[in-house]
């Protein structure tokens, strides 16, 4: 029994660690998603100023803290701009975006880099906190004013030059979004895949619940037996499970039901030694409430 419990504990810990190890990779889910080099009438910063900007997307399903990572426009200087720690702005929620301004104005805050981008400086890299591992990088082609170089769809390896800019939003904004149902219909027009996956999930959930409660039940039964054995001080007689007929259960259930439904604390009738008199009133008289007067039955006695 203990071995089984250990097995479940190890299994649960294993699942937990493997699921969380996937989440631990989430720093690698960051992507440089959209870049603008020449900003004349596009996105403005909090100071109302326009400059080159870089959008980074968190592709993962966990929030990621960018603090202590680096941004650079020169691979020889990977630690060019260190994203400061302690600023909640550097935390990117799941599937969300952050925009940095390459304007060389760090005094404007965390989101303002200490370098600029232009037609000669078109390389950008996001470097991890160790200062050497490149999480993502891109060399932007020469762009016209207010044009962007972006991934389409978000996070993919396909880059496009576009005049449709979407800072801090999905690049797929211009594409009509397909619903989850439509996607299912595309890949599973009959519904068989859905049926198989869903039935597997339902079975998995209930099989795990079954296994757990089978183990708990057995452990519990053993504990009860041990307790009984202790209280009998060794005089244990092997318990033989008698087969009880269904009627016995049905009778016991019926009796219990009747007992539960018929027991009551207050009687409907009152027993008293006081004189009880009924005051006559036509309003309370039953005879006036009857729609049909009762017939007096006459019993004919046979003549002797």
């Amino acid at each position: 029994m203990m071995r089984k419990l250990k097995y479940y504990v190890v299994l649960a810990v294993g699942v937990f660690i493997s699921v969380n190890s996937l989440n631990a990779q989430s720093i690698n889910d960051l992507r440089i998603n959209e870049v603008m080099l020449f900003n004349t009438n596009n996105y403005t910063d909090n100071f109302g100023q326009r400059g080159a900007w870089i959008e980074i997307m968190n592709m993962g399903y966990n929030s990621v803290n960018l603090a202590n990572c680096y941004l650079t426009n020169d691979l020889n200087e990977p630690k060019k701009y260190k994203i400061p720690s302690g600023d909640p702005i550097s935390i990117i929620p799941l599937r969300q975006f952050i925009v940095f301004f390459a304007d060389n104005k760090t005094e404007h805050g965390t989101l303002h880099l200490n370098f600029t981008l232009d037609s000669t400086h078109r390389f950008i890299a996001l470097v991890s906190s160790n200062g050497s591992t490149i999480i993502d990088s891109v060399t932007v082609p020469v762009l016209a004013a207010n044009q962007v170089y972006n991934r389409m769809p978000d996070g993919s390896s396909n880059w496009e030059v576009s005049s449709f800019t979407t800072p801090k939003a999905t690049n797929e904004g211009r594409v009509e979004k397909t619903s989850a149902g439509e996607k299912f219909l595309k890949y599973d027009p009959i519904g068989a895949v859905m049926a198989i996956i869903a039935m597997m999930v339902v079975f998995t959930a209930l099989i795990v619940l079954y296994r757990i409660f089978r183990t708990i039940g057995k452990a519990n039964q053993k504990a009860v037996q041990r307790k009984t054995a202790k209280s009998n001080e060794g005089k244990i007689e092997p318990q033989v499970e008698e087969e009880v007929a269904g009627e016995v259960f049905a009778a016991i259930s019926a009796a219990l039901y009747m007992y539960e439904t018929e027991k009551h604390d207050q009687e409907s009738a009152i027993i008293t030694i006081q004189r009880v008199s009924k005051i006559y009133s036509p309003w309370s008289s039953k005879i006036y409430g009857l729609r049909q007067l009762p017939n007096r039955s006459i019993v004919h006695q046979p003549k002797k």
Binding site: L185, A198, M199, I207
Partner: peptide
């Protein structure tokens, strides 16, 4: 008798059978 749990899982076949039939009749997946 926890194995009875599995019967509760198997009977959910009706849900997905009807899902397939509804798709066949031209309903959207939702």
């Amino acid at each position: 008798n926890p194995k009875l749990l599995l019967i509760g899982a198997a009977a959910q076949l009706g849900i997905f059978g009807a899902y397939i039939a509804a798709l066949f009749f031209g309903f959207t997946p939702e």
